[in-house]
Write a protein that binds this DNA or RNA. Structure first.
Length: 639
RNA sequence: GCCGAGAUAGCUCAGUCGGUAGAGCAACUGAUUCGUAAUCAGUAGGUCGGAGGUUCGAUUCCUCUUCUCGGCACCA
């Protein structure tokens, strides 16, 4: 029986003995064999050294391909695991996958790994690469594997084989050199030498076995890996630059806000930070208006009975703040929806009035776990650009579609292009019947489908009262944060007694849509700062222009120019200090002021100004009135 | 919340193998009026995150605690 191999160009070749990918590659050219990382066999990635025992479509995946990079990273994880076990006997291995930029591996060891250990481990990894150990794939019977790992003291591996792998599933072992092995799906490179040297261990952190906080805590060692040294170098440089854009660092440099021990997870906004806030708020208020929302405002604390009715007490009481007065317990609102329902309920509504859209810059407090707090991205007191739409079931899809369009427009106006869209589906802990969930989930899919966008689905991650679309943006070092959301809720209106009168004069329960575009003002501003590296576009900059006289003879004119810009609605300051113009330019540039308006004796005489834009050395002298008109137009809020 | 690391002047950081701390920038005072990213000189500034303990003596060692950072878990 011969094996028929079909190449991507359609050519075929038959083999009497099952060939390995490596042998086929060598048959084509030794250079190709050298560059080959893995092969694709009938669409599946296989090891180079695995015999191809069936007719197959065959393709060689060279080292420079993205699929190969994932294998390289996965190999790095295994080399890391071997290095750790060589250096720290008794450490148990668990799992170590490739990540977006590298790899990690989770270990069980009672002693913590230190930064110094990391250096030592990395050196040992390089040693294992130098040893160029062959990596071989083996298929083991389950019970033998369980026995082996139990005997080796690897109880996590043994447990996983017993609980995590089905009996009929093939169990593969990868042997690295003679003594070290790990259970793994593969594929892997042919030997450790193929990994190369473009990797680096970056950090160590905690992780839970099987991702569950009730399980044992493991130690996760992270690394980055690339196929070439240059890519690694570029990546490390990129990270270094990105760290300079951290919103917490920018907040100090630009004097935007601070946080302090007495108010963990809360923000003290300084004048300049609050100016950004107000610019964002003003813009969002325009969005509310343009898309048919009425702005409302509910109370900050409400009797706990309301939260019991809404279901929040059952689901979130541990994360809510409470306060007591005259033998009543109040909850500080963790969200605005029950408040909006009260406003809705204060009147009788006809089906003709729907949809009714309420919006609020709603201040919320949630007692987030201390470890979750992160600058202003994850806080305990925040403000949502919250909105609720009360509508009839048949209006859901068009409302969701309109919202989606609006949200994308907003992100674009703020300069964001790369938005991840997800649909979070029903969680285990939920209220309502499955048929209702089916409808709600399908409504979200239908809306996104009609908008022609791609999304990923997150099973189990929806809210307890309904599924949601999530809009995610990334911070400077690539961590994703949810900003906007659209949630379909068939439960809350009923629980809180909302209704409308339909055309047959009977009482119906409306559907409630929860939506936010920027999500939390705090988080959004944090991402905005990182995205623009603190250099906000003119319409958002806290100080839009500084008028800087060169000599004190021009002070009076500088005041006049600043007053004119101020009158035109710009956020402007005059820097009349007795300092050299070079110092003023430097300081205001470091403060990321978009426009510096320089005036000297010449400008004062001619009633002109010289504009210098941030990031450019080009200057432009023009009449004051013209400069005011032009800057005012540029600084106007978007839309 | 869990694992780990950290907290020293307004900021960025150094330092003390236990003898109560130092730099640069910023601030303040004075001089300088200088056309596009740092003018010069001088002055002042710290219960070394908080509470206990060990010690003749603690910013340094120990315990507890708060907060921050990195991960994980959580995120209505």
């Amino acid at each position: 029986m011969s094996i028929q191999i079909t190449f991507p160009d359609g050519n075929q070749k038959s083999f009497e003995v099952p060939p390995t990918g490596l042998e086929i590659a060598q048959g084509i050219s030794p250079g190709l064999a050298k560059k080959a990382a893995v092969v694709r066999v009938n669409g599946e990635l296989w090891d180079l050294t695995r015999p191809i025992d069936r007719d197959a479509r065959f393709e060689i995946v060279t080292r420079d391909k993205p699929e190969a990079l994932e294998v390289i990273r996965h190999d790095a994880a295994h080399v890391l695991a071997q290095a750790v076990q060589e250096l720290f006997p008794g450490t148990q291995v668990t799992f170590g996958p490739a990540t977006e930029t590298g790899f990690y591996y989770d270990f069980a060891r009672s002693e913590p790994f230190t930064e110094a250990d990391l250096e030592q481990i990395e050196a040992r990894m390089r040693d294992i690469v130098k040893r160029d150990l062959p990596i071989r794939r083996e298929v083991w019977p389950h019970d033998e594997a369980v026995k082996f790992f139990e005997k080796a003291g690897e109880k996590f591996k043994a447990e996983w084989i017993r609980d995590g792998i089905k009996a009929d599933e093939e169990l593969t072992i990868y042997r690295q050199g003679d003594t070290w092995l790990d259970m793994c799906l593969g594929p892997h490179l042919a030997s450790t030498g193929k990994l190369g040297t473009a990797f680096k261990l970056t950090k160590v952190g905690g992780a839970y076995w099987r991702g569950d906080a009730n399980n044992a805590q493991l130690q996760r060692i992270y690394g980055v890996a690339f196929s070439t040294e240059q890519e690694l170098k570029d990546y490390l440089h990129m990270v270094e630059e990105a760290e300079k854009r951290d919103h917490r660092r920018l907040a100090k440099q630009l004097d935007l806000f601070h946080q302090q021990e007495e108010a963990p997870g809360m923000v003290f906004w300084h004048p300049k930070g609050w100016a950004i806030w107000q610019a964002v708020e003003r813009y969002v208020r325009g969005v509310y208006k343009r898309s048919g929302y009425q702005e409302v405002r509910g109370p900050q604390i409400m009797d706990v009975s309301l939260w019991k009715k809404s279901g929040h007490w059952d689901n979130y009481q541990n994360n809510m703040f409470f306060t007591e007065s005259e033998k009543r317990t109040y909850a500080v609102k963790p969200m605005n929806c029950p408040g909006h329902v009260q406003i809705y309920n204060a009147n009788l509504h006809s089906y003709r009035d729907l949809p009714i859209r309420y919006a609020e810059f709603g201040g919320c407090h949630r007692n987030e776990p201390s470890g979750a707090l992160h600058g202003i991205m994850r806080v305990r007191a925040f403000t949502q650009d919250d909105g609720h739409i009360f509508c009839m079931p048949e209006q859901v899809e068009s409302e969701v579609t309109a919202f989606h369009r609006q949200a994308m427009e907003v992100y674009s106006d703020f300069g964001f292009g790369d938005i991840d869209i997800k649909i979070a589906l029903r969680p285990d802990k939920r209220i309502g019947e499955d048929a209702i969930w089916d409808r709600a989930e399908e409504a979200l899919r239908a809306a996104l489908r009609s908008a022609g966008v791609e999304w990923t689905e997150l099973p189990g991650e929806g809210a307890f009262y309904g599924p949601k679309i999530e809009y995610h943006l990334r911070d400077s070092i690539g961590r994703a944060w949810q900003v906007g959301t659209m949630q379909v809720d068939f439960m809350m209106p009923e629980r809180l007694g909302a209704s409308y009168i339909d055309e047959h004069s009977s009482r119906q329960i409306p559907v409630m849509l929860h939506r936010a575009i920027v999500g939390s003002m705090e988080r959004f501003i944090g991402i905005l700062l990182e995205h623009h590296a603190g250099a906000m576009p003119l319409w958002l900059a806290p100080v839009q222009a500084v008028v800087a006289p060169i000599v004190s003879d021009a002070d009076a004119y500088a005041r006049e120019a600043a007053a004119a810009l101020d009158a035109a609605g710009l956020r402007v300051e005059a820097d009349l200090r007795n300092e050299k113009i070079t110092l003023k330019i430097r300081e205001h540039s470091l403060q990321k002021v978009p426009v510096i308006v320089v005036v000297g004796r010449r400008e004062a005489e001619e009633k002109t100004v010289t504009l210098r834009r941030l990031g450019s050395e080009r200057q432009e002298t023009l009449p004051l009135a013209e400069a005011v008109a032009r800057l005012a137009a540029e600084a106007a809020p978007q839309r």
